[in-house]
């Protein structure tokens, strides 16, 4: 003879695995049901990924104007915290000026592959943070992440200019020695 209550309690965990459930299919359906949000997100990622390639490499070299993603971020930051929005615009301008300078100096990706790779990573991090901003506009840590990414990008560009200058100076010194 068994005590039904005790028996059921001691076998409780078995009750979570009785019926067949196609979890992958359910997860697929779940994603499908939430398509507007997800699609927008992944569509955005796709568009942005193409943008990264053009932005991260080409714009730095060819002095492209301020990026659309910066304007989007600025708009959102202005709504959330005008002080941060102002800081962001300052960083965007700095990055734009650095990009222009790099273009004028004729720096190519082949010269600094690691730094260019880091720029790409930073751009993808920025896109990820932007995507989060879509969903969590009230999250202060995300705004800080966005600004941190800008600062990191500015530092990488600064390093690139510095290293290029250093190389140029070394070359000039070597050639002057030969003369």
């Amino acid at each position: 003879m068994i005590d039904l209550e005790k028996y059921i309690r001691s076998h409780r965990s078995e009750l979570d695995d009785i019926e067949d459930l196609n979890i992958d299919e359910m997860w697929g359906d779940f994603n499908e049901q939430n398509r507007p949000k997800s699609k927008r997100k992944y569509g955005f990622y796709l568009a942005a990924a193409i943008g990264i390639i053009l932005i991260g490499v080409v714009s730095v070299l060819s002095q492209r104007p301020v990026l659309n993603q910066d304007e989007i971020i600025h708009e959102k930051l202005t709504q959330a915290d005008p002080r941060l929005a102002e800081e962001q615009m300052g960083l965007v301008k700095m990055i734009s000026d650095q990009g222009a300078l790099i273009g004028q100096m004729g720096i190519e990706e082949a010269a600094f592959p690691e730094l260019f790779q880091e720029l790409k990573v930073l751009d993808s991090l920025q896109l990820e943070a932007m995507s989060d901003l879509e969903n969590y506009q009230d999250r202060k840590n995300l705004w800080k992440t966005l600004l941190r990414n800008y600062k990191s990008k500015a530092r990488v560009l600064e390093l690139m200019i510095y290293e290029f200058d250093k190389k140029e100076n070394e070359l000039n010194y070597e050639s002057s020695k030969q003369i």
Binding site: L15, D16, E19, L21, F30
Partner: peptide, 19 residues
């Protein structure tokens, strides 16, 4: 917004919640 992590949470608990 990491979809893979959301998927992990979903897979971990969906069966019990369905039951």
């Amino acid at each position: 917004g990491n979809r893979l992590a959301q998927g992990d949470i979903y897979r971990k608990y969906v069966k019990a919640m369905y039951h």
